[in-house]
Design a protein around this nucleic acid. Structure first.
Length: 198
DNA sequence: TCATTAAAGTTAT
DNA sequence: ATAACTTTAATGA
């Protein structure tokens, strides 16, 4: 939870409901709001020249969306799209900044969250250059699993489709599938009726 | 080696 | 039913 929901409510936050594939904001829009997911999942994406989707991030319950853009005046460089049905809290940029002035501990919480997001981006940036597909998938899964309590092998079910893993790593789906099979053979993952256990 | 294309099977809506 | 996802196979850079 980035910011306590009660505080957001007390500052006049409103809940907006989104259907799957409904857009929350689009590339080119000006960031005027702070968004925090109550439930459901959201993806941040782009499309490259060929129209292939690039997933820049996946946000779930308690996470905020596009908060880092609220500290400058530039349009969003990405789209935010609901993956599942979701409810999202929204407050104006101005109110958001006021909350930060008022609550130092929320600032720290926000810094921590932004740190985590930056960490993810750094890992993924490394991935973009000179990595074989297996390594790309491993580092993605390592990151996803790192926030889990249980760390034993095959205890973590990857909550992404192969399609999504491809869009995050820049691989094509077929390569993701082939690599996962090789990794299964090498006992790096287990696959049980299409579920990936890492 | 990996991307692309195509075709077909499977799952989710 | 239809769309989205998964899988396999062939081909080419």
């Amino acid at each position: 939870m980035v910011i306590d929901e009660d505080i957001l409510y007390s500052m006049g936050a409103i809940i907006k409901a989104y259907r799957p594939s409904e857009s929350i904001f689009n590339e080119g829009d000006l960031p005027n709001y702070y968004y925090q997911v109550i439930n459901g999942d959201v993806k941040l994406n782009n499309y490259n020249e060929e129209g292939k989707e690039i997933i820049q991030g996946l946000m779930g319950k308690g996470q905020s969306i596009g908060e880092s853009l609220l500290f400058m005046d530039k349009p969003y460089p990405i789209n935010a799209v609901a993956i599942t049905s979701c409810n999202i809290l929204r407050i104006s940029k101005c109110t958001f900044l006021n909350i930060l002035k008022q609550y130092p501990e929320i600032c720290l919480g926000l810094f921590e969250y932004i740190s985590q997001r930056l960490y993810f981006k750094l890992i993924m940036a490394q991935n973009l250059c000179t990595q074989n597909p297996t390594h790309k998938l491993i580092s993605l899964m390592d990151y996803l699993k790192s926030s889990e309590e249980e760390q034993s092998p095959y205890s973590f079910q990857v909550p992404l489709t192969r399609q999504q893993m491809a869009s995050i790593t820049g691989l094509c789906v077929e390569t993701v599938i082939r690599s996962l099979k090789k990794m299964e053979k090498d006992n790096m993952v287990q696959i049980e009726n299409r579920k990936i256990l890492y």
